[in-house]
Amino acid sequence: MSGLVVVGVDGSASSLAAVDAAVRQARSRGARLRVVHAFLWPALHVPLGPSPLGPPEGGLRKMADRLVAEGVERARAAVPEVEVSGEVVTGEPLTVLETQSRAAELVVVGSRGMGGFVGLLIGSTAVHLAAHGRCPVLVVRERAGGDGPVVLGVDGSAEGARAVDFAFAEARSRKAPLVALHAWTTWNAPMPGPREASTPYANPPGALAEEEGRLSSEALAGCRERYPDVTVEHEVVHGETRKALIEASRSAQLVVVGARGRGGFAGLLLGSVSQALLHHAHCPVAVVRGADARR
């Protein structure tokens, strides 16, 4: 096993679900699994050992070791054939997991950790990693996704090409159909090429829809050839992308999106569509950054 999948744990129900998803990912990839806990307390200069008035097995350091050990044990029990290791790394979670992502092919985290505020649907760690991680990031909720298709958000952008390949690989690994969903409006669609001067409309009726369908099909063409065993359903809908993908996530087992699509502003690492899905999708979400991810 040469590849590496990393999962962050903090003792929350969400992170336990992340361990379950991560070990399955490691098995399907033929990769090792590393269970990581970011140990913030040394940087805050608080006592790490057991209290003189408490049990000898107490203390923050032993609690951190226990969280990792429990994650490792859970993963090994679920999929014994995967090589699993654990590590407590000093630092705050955002920095620790971003650093871990440099050597990993996938980082898996829960949608909300122990530090989450009541009422928030997703924690800051998941959002930060989706924007800054150097590899794809899988965000898992306590409730697993359904047994439906893998849903891919397609926008035809160069930044989204890696997300397309990731989604096809996931669909093949899961033996699931792939729904390639492209939603467009007149505000986010690129204008078709110039028409003849005699054309009565700047863009004849149906021209934008036709162009959107073409761009979406071209985005999938290479992966269709590389993954001939994946059944693909291509959906092009006129409507808001966020709403369409969130609705599709109700019956999906996974939604895959690029970190930033063609409508994003230069310099932003995470677009509005991927952020909306992280907060509101009904199943796990994989966010895949483009060619700049390893820089």
Results as ranks from 00 to 15, higher is better:
2 S>Y: 10
127 V>D: 06
140 V>N: 07
61 R>S: 11
181 L>K: 03
293 A>C: 07
183 A>T: 02
189 A>S: 09
173 S>L: 09
147 D>L: 11
170 E>S: 06
220 L>M: 12
218 E>D: 10
274 S>Y: 02
31 A>V: 10
133 G>F: 06
48 L>D: 03
35 V>F: 00
220 L>C: 09
107 V>L: 06
284 P>S: 14
230 V>F: 04
84 V>P: 02
291 A>V: 15
235 E>H: 08
198 S>F: 10
224 R>K: 06
132 H>G: 10
26 A>E: 04
72 V>F: 06
27 R>A: 15
101 S>T: 08
204 P>N: 13
253 Q>A: 09
230 V>W: 02
242 R>S: 14
273 V>Q: 07
68 V>S: 01
155 D>L: 10
273 V>S: 09
295 R>K: 07
115 G>C: 09
46 V>F: 02
24 R>A: 15
225 E>L: 10
86 G>I: 00
26 A>T: 01
158 A>D: 11
13 A>M: 10
135 C>E: 06
166 F>H: 10
295 R>E: 09
116 G>N: 05
89 V>Q: 01
293 A>F: 07
121 L>V: 08
101 S>C: 15
233 E>I: 12
255 V>Q: 05
127 V>R: 05
45 H>D: 13
222 G>Y: 04
63 M>A: 15
164 V>N: 00
19 V>W: 03
15 S>T: 03
186 T>W: 13
105 E>F: 04
249 S>A: 06
15 S>I: 01
155 D>E: 07
221 A>E: 15
288 V>K: 05
193 G>H: 04
194 P>L: 06
256 V>F: 03
231 T>Q: 12
177 P>C: 13
192 P>A: 15
196 E>R: 12
60 L>C: 05
159 E>M: 11
277 L>S: 02
95 T>Q: 13
287 V>L: 07
209 A>G: 09
133 G>R: 05
295 R>M: 08
93 P>Q: 13
225 E>Y: 00
294 R>S: 15
145 G>R: 06
262 R>Q: 05
17 A>K: 03
34 R>H: 02
83 E>W: 03
90 T>A: 14
67 L>M: 03
216 S>W: 01
190 P>K: 07
21 A>H: 01
140 V>K: 05
125 T>H: 11
108 V>W: 03
79 V>Q: 11
147 D>Q: 12
119 G>A: 08
49 G>S: 03
47 P>D: 14
133 G>L: 11
147 D>W: 03
14 S>D: 09
53 L>V: 12
182 H>Y: 14
2 S>E: 14
235 E>Y: 04
221 A>C: 09
242 R>L: 12
88 V>R: 00
